[in-house]
């Protein structure tokens, strides 16, 4: 059995794929920013002294880490309007769903980074009279970020690939365009391979950069 490759469809498909890539990058960027902001709050909540705060936040984290991202997307898209009577545009609803998802992961990375800082740093800051926010800003977080940044970056690279899920909800990202073109051209293998290569061409250099950064941060002053 032989397959007749038809790579000539690819150049014509390229402009549409790049438009899709733009959407993929936009979704990734918005979700990274919102997710990191929410993740910081999640970490603060997990570390709160009061179990009334830390327990519900822990529950949220476990729910979003313990269910498939696709289920979360579909749930926010279809069920939220029913439960809350709130109709979101599809872009907004995928941003909400993915933000809730990655914030759980970022939150855990930030919490772990903060908890990795030796206790004597907190005590030294306490006896110097630094308040909670100053202690975080000047003593704990600058040290914790060296641990957090590589983890958060690799989670962001995963997110970039996982955004392909939004194509199932009709958002015109790279994966969506690839599926449309695959159907139009009857050439799914060529088109989807191209899409895969585009994902890889972006994710792989980022992975390498993260690894270099990780080594640099690990050997930096401490």
């Amino acid at each position: 059995m032989s397959y007749d490759w038809a790579w000539h469809v690819v150049p014509r498909a390229f402009p549409a794929l790049l438009r899709g890539l733009e959407m993929t990058l936009a979704v990734t960027a918005v979700v990274v920013v919102c997710g990191f902001a929410l993740g910081t709050l999640v970490a603060a909540g997990r570390l709160a002294r009061s179990p009334l705060v830390s327990k519900p936040v822990a529950l949220y984290v476990e729910i979003f880490r313990g269910t498939p991202a696709l289920v979360q997307l579909v749930w926010v898209y279809y069920c939220l309007p029913i439960v809350l009577g709130l109709e979101l545009p599809s872009f907004a609803s995928i941003v909400v769903a993915l933000t809730l998802n990655v914030a759980a992961f970022y939150g855990e990375a930030i919490r772990a980074g903060i908890q990795a800082i030796p206790r004597d740093q907190t005590e030294a800051a306490d006896v110097l009279g630094l308040g909670y926010l100053d202690k975080m800003r000047f003593v704990i977080l600058p040290q914790a970020f060296r641990i957090i940044i590589p983890v958060a970056l690799s989670q962001s690279i995963s997110l970039f690939k996982d955004t392909a899920l939004v194509s199932t909800l009709g958002v015109a990202d790279l994966m969506y365009q690839a599926r449309v073109l695959a159907t139009e051209t009857y050439r799914p293998i060529e088109i989807l391979s191209t899409a895969a290569l585009i994902y890889f061409a972006i994710a792989f250099p980022c992975t390498i950069a993260t690894r270099i950064l990780e080594v640099r941060l690990a050997t930096a002053r401490r």
């Binding site: 004597d120 740093q121 005590e123 030294a124 110097l128 009279g129 630094l130 308040g131 100053d134 000047f138 003593v139 600058p142 040290q143 002053r221 401490r222």
Partner: peptide
């Protein structure tokens, strides 16, 4: 003063000493 020094490793010696007077 602690047994293990507990200096802030990401700050210079001068910043270690000057931090609390500024912030506190």
């Amino acid at each position: 003063v602690f047994q293990q020094f507990s200096l802030f490793p990401h700050l210079t010696v001068l910043q270690n000493v000057a931090l609390a007077p500024v912030r506190v």
